[in-house]
Design a binder for these strands. Structure first.
Lengths: 210, 210
DNA sequence: CAACAATACGGACCCTGGGTCCGCTTTGCA
DNA sequence: TGCAAAGCGGACCCAGGGTCCGTATTGTTG
């Protein structure tokens, strides 16, 4: 494959931009108040460099987002139950939703930015496809559950960044409460209770937004 | 109250703008490709007039949206069951969701535009509050259902414009199929089947998008 | 080490598109 | 018919995403 290794300065600049963007996004209320010029300035880099490295605004946000998402992907792909592949669907579906919820709680700004960016919102993001496909496959293994495609979408919709933002930032719902509510909702949809409850702060450690 | 009646030409222009915007939005794939200048030109009106009448882009879209929404609001507020207030919650919740879904199916572009506009998406729209409040009140009357606030949000999330757009425009799910899936999903969440099924094209007649 | 591609840099520049301003026109009341 | 008040419209403004290209770095080759 044509994977050519980048020049040293290019790599350094890319990292600087990522770090600067991360800081800036975390500091402000909405990512929309951070301009590309701001990011470039904060990273001590020219706009040209910024755009060459990430293509466009969406590319930058996506890069940031996917880096943060990696731990969860690993945990789902090869981690221990209830998130990992060894768990039974009845446990794993709630676990996945909970992991996603926690992720959005910890990365509100970023998730919000990504789901708003572009036109067709989160549905065109490649990782959405992954979550949906996985969830659907799990739902299909649950007896008596039809419409796995739609159901997967509907369950994921309950973890959307702007809903989370609304509940946490506006209605002041507490983290644990929201996790419990989502779990209970999922349980209802699945048709019977899971074999174990929620514990701890979240399935994956991650830097919380300030 | 300080409700002063507008001048005749102002009223005419307002109507012209509304009509022009409607046509333009219906014609294009995404409302984002329609600029305010386009709307003004199509309505044979200056940009100043346009902005004076609606404040800003969001105002225009909202005006269009709320006009379309009125029939549903009436039906919910004072219509016959299962949408009207006489119905039991177990019938009315699915009916409301179905009405909302049909509305979004018939007004995809518009709903999409509104839910994307601004930052905190649909949750800051005043009509969302209404649907949510109503739904929550109904859920509270259903025995054995906790977390009515969250549940209402989650159910509404399943009718979000971009999800509808995704299913209909991308996955090519047929209208009736989607209605059935949503109904079935709602049923699951409510904990038991409704006392009647779906019939007809939709609860409210409305111009379909071309 | 010198020379030279190839690659990257960066900030001046462009352009779209939302929103404003203000001199002119229309309306409608007296 | 006269005269405010209300409204009109399009020239204008400006933020901000994205591009361009002359210059600077890199690292490779003899």
């Amino acid at each position: 494959m044509p994977e050519r290794k980048p020049r040293k300065d290019a790599a350094r600049n890319r990292a600087a931009v990522l770090a600067a963007a991360d800081t800036l996004f975390a500091r402000c209320e909405s990512t929309e108040e951070v301009t590309m010029a701001d990011v470039a300035a904060a990273a001590s880099v020219g706009k040209g460099t910024l755009f060459r490295a990430f293509g466009d605004r969406t590319g930058l946000i996506r890069a940031l987002y996917e880096a943060r998402l990696e731990p969860i992907e690993d945990a789902v792909e090869a981690g221990p139950p209830p998130l990992g592949p060894a768990a039974s669907p009845l446990d794993r579906v709630p676990a996945l939703l909970d992991a996603l919820l926690c992720f959005k709680l910890d990365n509100r700004r970023l998730a919000l930015a990504l789901e708003e960016t572009g036109s067709a919102s989160p549905y065109q993001a490649e990782h959405y496809q992954r979550w949906h496909g996985l969830l659907q496959a799990m739902l299909e293994q649950i007896p008596g559950l039809a419409d796995s495609d739609f159901t997967a979408h509907a369950l994921l919709a309950a973890t959307r960044a702007d809903l989370v933002e609304r509940l946490v930032g506006h209605e002041r719902v507490r983290r644990e409460k929201m996790r419990a509510q989502l779990a209970s909702f999922a349980t209802r949809v699945l048709g019977s209770g899971p074999t174990q409850g929620l514990t701890g702060r979240g399935p994956i450690e991650d830097q919380a937004s300030p």
